[in-house]
């Protein structure tokens, strides 16, 4: 395989692979940019990265190909997904532009830059490809290792320091120092009473309804949904699912069934009316 790669033109197989996977990679990239939900973006990006890993392997960078899958697709993308979950996995972004002219400028710059890059690559004299056959003769990993620990050892050490710094930095950024003793439950309840806040426990979500999930507001006895029953984060994201209309429909169906079973002809109109008002 390596002998073929060293040739001026690649094999037909590689060409086929390039065109198919290249198209997937571009689609993934476009998906990353244009998907409304960030979780979809993340998945598209993961796809592109896997394609790139294959390309690394095809170009003789075996170590990098594996690292790409393990570190990038495996670790980094998972980290992304965690954050996406934290921020709201179902939240959809509006793609409507708010800054005047930003989109046109972005497109202009993007197209211009792309054209320039293409022109640059087209102009460059890239006729001769040596291939990695010679370099990988003693094995790709060994070759990389010998370079990293000799020629690039200083940069390598520095990246180590960089990683440590980054880890510490992430901790500092997200860590909140506790400056006083944690309050006991008694103290917390006393404080609540003193401040006149909501005294009893918050209502549970999803109760008195057919659906039972954290993003569904619990219905009060008169049928109105109580926002207090939903987690604050979900409330702020606007991700409360309103099922009151559905619940009322269910109620009506239930009454109708019971009427049929009891063979009543007259329904109590006042009861219906009250229920409708309550739903508003």
């Amino acid at each position: 395989m390596s002998a073929q790669l060293a040739a001026y033109a690649t094999s037909t197989g590689e060409a086929f692979q390039f065109w198919v996977l290249g198209a997937i990679a571009v689609m993934g990239a476009l998906g990353t940019v244009f998907m409304k939900k960030s979780v979809h973006s993340a998945l598209s990006l993961a796809g592109t990265m896997i394609v790139l890993a294959v390309f690394y392997l095809a170009n003789g960078a075996y170590f990098l190909g594996i690292v790409q899958i393990v570190v990038y697709t495996g670790a980094i993308m998972m980290l992304f997904l965690f954050v996406v979950m934290l921020v709201g996995v179902t939240a959809a972004d509006s793609l409507k532009e708010t800054i005047k002219g930003q989109r046109w400028l972005a497109l202009l710059c993007g197209v211009g830059f792309g054209v320039l890059l293409f022109a640059g690559i087209g102009n460059a004299s890239l006729k001769e490809f040596d291939g990695t056959g010679q370099a990988n003769a003693n094995g790709n990993v060994e070759g990389l290792a010998s370079l990293i620990f000799t020629k690039y050892v200083f940069a390598f050490e520095i990246t180590g320091a960089l990683l440590i710094t980054a880890a510490v930095g992430a901790m500092v950024l997200t860590h909140r120092e506790r400056t006083e003793r944690a309050k006991t439950q008694r103290e917390l309840s006393e404080q609540r009473v003193r401040e006149g806040k909501h005294l009893p426990p918050l209502p549970a979500p999803g109760v008195y309804a057919r659906h039972n999930a954290v993003d569904i507001a619990g219905l009060l006895p008169d049928g109105t949904p109580s926002e207090l029953s939903v987690n604050r984060t979900l409330r702020e994201r606007g991700q409360i699912r309103d099922v009151s209309a559905q619940a009322l429909g269910d109620l009506r169906a239930l009454e109708q069934r019971s009427e049929e079973r009891l063979e009543r002809t007259e329904t109590d109109p006042a009861h219906f009316k009250r229920a409708e008002e309550a739903s508003k």
């Binding site: 990353t32 972005a106 710059c109």
Partner: peptide, 13 residues
């Protein structure tokens, strides 16, 4: 180059 440009445009948009 294409991927880079798409990424850059995405950053801006």
């Amino acid at each position: 180059a294409l991927l880079f440009t798409i990424g850059a445009t995405g950053v801006l948009i």
